[in-house]
Design a protein around this nucleic acid. Sequence first.
DNA 1: TTGTTACCGCTCAAAGATGAACGATGTGGA
DNA 2: TCCACATCGTTCATCTTTGAGCGGTAACAA
Lengths: 119, 119
Amino acid sequence: MTSKRTKLQEDTHFRVLRLLQENPEMSQRELAEAVGVSVGGIHYVLNALIEKGLVKLGNFTAAEDKRRYAYVLTPRGIARKVALTRAFLVRKMEEYEGLKEEIESLQVELDANAEKKLS
Amino acid sequence: MTSKRTKLQEDTHFRVLRLLQENPEMSQRELAEAVGVSVGGIHYVLNALIEKGLVKLGNFTAAEDKRRYAYVLTPRGIARKVALTRAFLVRKMEEYEGLKEEIESLQVELDANAEKKLS
DNA sequence: TTGTTACCGCTCAAAGATGAACGATGTGGA
DNA sequence: TCCACATCGTTCATCTTTGAGCGGTAACAA
């Protein structure tokens, strides 16, 4: 089994690839907000994705804004994202089931407590 | 809105209180495993709970094992746990809904991709 | 032109989380 | 009895993550 940390990192990579495929002109801050990590963290994963050749820097279209980049998925980036999708989905479905069980057991607990108060 | 970190900490406190109410003789390692944080982290929250008077150290029953403690909820600890339950449940239900949406959108994406391959 | 404001990518000190290792204690077999 | 081993709570060097703040650029108003 791969480590918890590796999985979280993979999740983040996947989320970033997904968001960028949809809109390559998102800023680092927007990405950070959307995936739920810090700006520093996003900067780091973007570098990693560029390093791996999954994302390349393009020009920001609107008015050639020199401050910012467009983060464009390369063909390999697109392939990578597709490959990650299933594993990600499986992981999220497991989380979903776990959460479902936890919620149910909490509700049982609350109900039991409510009854006790009545008696 | 309280910070993300505060919420996670509150979640951990709640989980620990819940587990200890059910079984006060869990070891720090067992707790760590069950709530998904490190042993160091559990040690830290246990100290915090004891400091707040929500948990007190009791004797481990079986054969008076001097190495270990029983972590017993005080009345205030029980009250605190009840108070945290609803907030925790609400948070988990929100997470549940979020996860549900994410999973659905992923499935749509995979289906679209599958169709494209066929054509 | 000259300020003011806002946001960009990027950095790094500070804060947080981790888990291997330690001394102490219990267990079971030689 | 003695020894080897397992597990206890606890510590702390190490790694990870955070987000305020920096220098730079754009947009707008005066």
